[in-house]
Design a protein around this nucleic acid. Structure first.
Length: 553
RNA sequence: GCCCCUGUAGCUCAGAGGAUAGAGCACUGGCCUCCGAAGCCAGGAGCGUGGGUUCGAGUCCCGCCAGGGGCACCA
């Protein structure tokens, strides 16, 4: 694709330099994969887009550009097409030769040198340690994790981070609720605080602590007991979240804890920076971020009248830490739709800190509505009603769960019917793709058992349409990785994987690979090379999605 | 009231301003003496609505209708 773009740009420059085409302001050269195979492997609508500026018939522009595009060994044909496209067909011999290139790259196949080692932080999930992870959080988890894997493949230096809000109001609420549950577990009368966490899991955690600690905490003064309980309970919640993430196959590099912002002076530094840039105001006993001056709808409280910082203040300090203290070049936050209203003021705050707001990207993923058959389940942690990630993984398994969350654009709401997910899990695309990988493995195994060494296979024998279609599909992977990394849209990966599996299954159907018939030795070795390249591409796609690539099923 | 997201096949969803809008599931009919039939092949049906921009709109802009989310000294 880069090659095509370059060829077109050069042809255009040459045509303009030689006077065959009038000059015009430069535009980006569009190149795409045409839907229909008869339009070639690549197509450009460059002539159509130039027509107005050049005041010429687009087809005439195409006619003049085509002769200026050198043949090379990759292109079989370049031709103009009405009303003004230029189409490119790849040379089958060149395509076949790419199989060798794929094998040579091995597990690195698909990597693209886009990021140049630029440091990017992806922060995601980051729910309060006041309850278990539920399915809505899992969506953001998978999105962030796969995005990180994609950026990694695209040459960025990626840090995956989880932010624990282990300070603030909600934690005090959690501690108070836990204390009440503990007292209840010890047989005492106790009431949950106003707005406390009523979920059953709190009862379980309190019981667990009661079993482990006995009545030791009853003897302490209430304040001290709450503090001690809080410490133990927080530890349990954090470990629970960490093991959930592990089970979802998400591996964080950093577990950042909010309270360190205060102990390490990040909070003061961030507030000082805002203050010295004249973005703060004292009103009604509180400290405000004067975001209206930056075009926001309203100002935002940073420090309450009580002197306690808001969640927003902590988040400002946290982002100060990301950009200024740790020096990430870019930061990507993955948030749920319920935080959408927080986006613009966060960006405003970044700007107020003197940081280019474009270095911060906030991805919003829409809510997950849970259904069990006809019954709609509202997920609310404080109401204590939700489906946990644990339950989901128990029912559908990690691979389908990841695939299901990943396959939808983050912008679209999801309806997750647990019954359906469970019922269809034996016939969903997850198994289709993994089956292709298992098939590949078993073919290679059979070849090995028959003592066939395909190391000297001649890939130029690969000329069947099914073989060429499979090669084309394999070669799309690097392009896809680049595009996903640029647009921050990992949800294309499942669809690509499915297409790749289809291309492989079709090839398998059309072309016998391991054949012991006399005269078939050469084509068998050539096809084994293609199978090996398929294994690499399928394996890479699955690993980018964080899914298992089984040798057998 | 204001802000964000979404309306595409019976269902769940893809769709890079381009050429004839695609998958899976479900339904129907074919294909294993041969590398795994968890597979392959074939079949029907669709862009919420009204304008606009453009050579060209599912895609961009405006209105309307419908669904979800947000608009706290909660996080």
């Amino acid at each position: 694709m880069h090659l095509i773009r370059e060829l077109l740009a050069n042809a255009l420059a040459e045509a303009q330099a030689s006077g065959q085409l009038p000059s015009a302001p430069p535009i980006e050269v569009p190149v795409e994969h045409p839907q229909s195979a008869e339009h070639g492997d690549y197509a450009s609508s460059l002539p159509l887009r130039l027509a107005r500026a050049l005041r010429m018939n687009p087809l005439e522009i195409a006619n003049r550009l085509v002769p200026l595009i050198p043949a090379g060994d990759a292109l079989a044909r370049v031709w103009p097409e009405s009303p003004g496209f230029i189409n490119f067909a790849l040379e089958p011999r060149w395509l076949a030769a790419q199989v060798e290139a794929v094998i040579e790259e091995g597990p690195a196949f698909g990597n693209v040198p886009l990021g140049g080692g630029e440091s990017v932080q992806v922060e995601f999930v980051s729910i309060n340690p006041t309850g278990p992870i539920h399915v809505g959080h899992a969506r953001g988890g998978v999105l962030g994790d796969v995005l990180a894997r994609v950026l990694d493949a695209a040459g960025f230096s990626v840090t995956r981070e989880y932010y624990f809000n282990d300070a603030g109001n909600q934690m005090d609420n959690f501690y108070g609720s836990l204390h009440a549950r503990y007292l209840q577990a010890m047989g005492q009368d106790a009431e949950l605080p106003q707005g406390g966490y009523v979920g059953e899991y709190m009862v379980d955690v309190a019981k667990e602590i009661a079993d482990e600690e006995g009545d030791r905490l009853l003897d302490l003064p209430a304040e001290q007991a709450v503090e001690e309980l809080g410490r133990i309970g927080l530890g349990k919640m954090m470990r629970g979240i960490q093991s959930d993430m592990e089970r979802l196959r998400i591996d964080f590099d950093v577990w950042f804890r909010e309270h360190t912002l205060y102990s390490d002076g990040q909070y003061e530094k961030a507030m000082d920076a805002l203050g010295s840039n004249n973005h703060l105001a004292k009103r009604e006993g509180a400290t405000w971020f004067v975001s209206t001056a930056l075009g926001e709808d309203k100002d935002n409280v940073l420090v309450r009248g009580t002197g306690v910082p808001t969640y927003f203040a902590a988040d400002v300090a946290y982002h100060y830490n990301k950009f200024v203290e740790r020096g990430f070049s870019r930061v990507i936050d993955v948030w749920g739709a319920d935080h959408q209203g927080h986006v613009s003021r966060m960006k405003a705050a970044i700007g107020a800190l003197g940081i280019d707001p474009d270095r911060l990207t906030i991805l919003i993923n829409q809510m997950v509505t849970l259904k069990r058959g006809q019954q709609i389940l509202r997920a609310s942690k404080r109401a204590g009603e939700f489906i946990t990630l644990q339950e989901l993984l128990d029912e559908v398994g990690t691979d389908p769960c990841r695939y299901f969350f990943l396959a939808r654009s983050p912008d679209s709401q999801m309806e997750f019917d647990l019954e359906l997910a469970k019922k269809s899990s034996n016939e969903n695309p997850v198994f289709y793709i993994q089956y292709a990988h298992a098939r590949v493995a078993s073919i290679l195994k059979l070849a090995a058992e028959n003592g066939i060494d395909h190391g000297d296979g001649d890939v130029s024998l690969l000329t069947d349409p099914a073989e060429l279609a499979l090669i084309r599909k394999i070669l799309e992977l690097p392009e896809l990785i680049e595009s996903m990394a640029v647009k921050l849209e990992p949800h294309h990966l499942p669809h690509y994987s499915q297409d790749l599996a289809t291309a492989f299954h079709w090839f398998y159907q059309q072309c016998r690979v391991v054949s012991t018939a006399p005269g078939d030795e050469a084509i068998t070795r050539a096809r084994l090379k293609l199978v090996q390249a398929s294994a690499i591409a399928l394996g890479r796609a699955l690993s980018l999605m964080g899914m298992e690539a089984p040798e057998k099923m």
